[in-house]
Simulated scan of single mutants.
Amino acid sequence: MGHLQKIILLVLVVPLALFPGGLISYVLMYEELKFETSMWIPIGMTALGIGSFIFHFKTKNFYRLVKKDEELPRVDLLLWILNFAFGMVYILLSFFMIYVMYTFRTEKNWFMMLITIIPMFIVGIWTVFDALYLNKLIGIHKYEHRHSEIEDIKGNITE
Results as ranks from 00 to 15, higher is better:
V66R: 06
I122Q: 06
F55M: 09
G49K: 05
I43D: 11
L114V: 06
F96E: 08
L77I: 10
G49Q: 05
E107L: 15
K60F: 12
R64Y: 07
L92Y: 08
A47E: 13
I81T: 09
L93C: 04
G124I: 00
T59V: 10
M101N: 04
L93Q: 08
N61E: 15
N61D: 14
G51R: 01
I118M: 08
F62I: 10
T59F: 04
F111G: 07
W126R: 06
G44Q: 07
I122L: 13
F121D: 03
M45N: 01
R64F: 07
M88T: 06
P73V: 14
A47K: 07
T106V: 14
R105T: 13
T116Q: 12
T127F: 03
T116N: 10
F57H: 01
T116H: 09
M113Q: 08
E71A: 14
L65E: 06
L72F: 09
E71W: 11
V123S: 00
S52T: 05
I118H: 06
L78H: 06
S52M: 01
M113E: 05
L79Q: 00
K108Y: 11
F121R: 06
T127H: 00
V66K: 04
L78Y: 11
L65I: 13
T127A: 08
L82N: 00
L65A: 12
R105I: 14
G49F: 02
L92N: 08
K108P: 02
N61R: 08
F62V: 09
W80Y: 15
R74W: 14
M112S: 10
F121I: 01
M88Y: 04
F84L: 12
A85N: 04
